[in-house]
Amino acid sequence: MTIVRTEKLCKVYNPDTVPVHALNNVCIEVDEGEFTALRGPSGSGKTTLLNMIGGLDKPTEGKVFIDGHEISSMKDSKRIDFRLQNIGFVFQHYNLIPVFTAAENVAFIMMLQGRDKQEIRKRTDKLLDQVGLGDRKDARPAQLSGGQQQRVAVARALASEPRFILADEPTANLDTEAAMNLLDIMEKMNREQNITFVFSTHDQRVIDRARRVVTMVDGAIDQDEIQDPDKT
């Protein structure tokens, strides 16, 4: 089942001064359960494409459909709500709320969704256990390592039970061990719970573990290949 579909997506920055064509007629579909990496050199449009899919930015032309809903034309407030219910984000710099504990960071998203307190507590504990941080749930981000913070970020992204998770360079700030650890967790969730992941990355370690690799060059898709799952 297709979760994400883009139609001739174009994004031009500074159209009135020095136009920069970040995306050129990008058409891509992502099916449920994919573990997809977007790769390409800096400026190739990976992050721009992720932002469009995540509803963080509007295309200059073209459309983005999530589960059949066109989010590119939604109003700001509706798009924020749509993101809350449907999309999980993992950022390069973790971006946890510094004054909240690991558990509170995870619970916060569910609180925004208006879920029941009991349910929030149970799910928070479960998610933190899944990312191996059940014993650090009361730690604040500053008390956690980079790898641990990114694992909390993954748990936070999963908290809202999104249709898919977008991860922008999730391992860029992690050492090898932490990066592999994070990838193990994400891959396990993908396999066991059929959670869809889309990454933008330069990291060969991530690319090697992806089952689909989309290569972008100059704002367009240059290659779209399925990798052998055994390779991972």
Partner: peptide, 16 residues
């Protein structure tokens, strides 16, 4: 500001 951007990204409403 960065934190605000992240909070809005993950679904917090501007009003909240």
């Amino acid at each position: 500001l960065r934190e605000f951007g992240v909070l809005l990204s993950v679904g917090m409403k501007r009003g909240s």
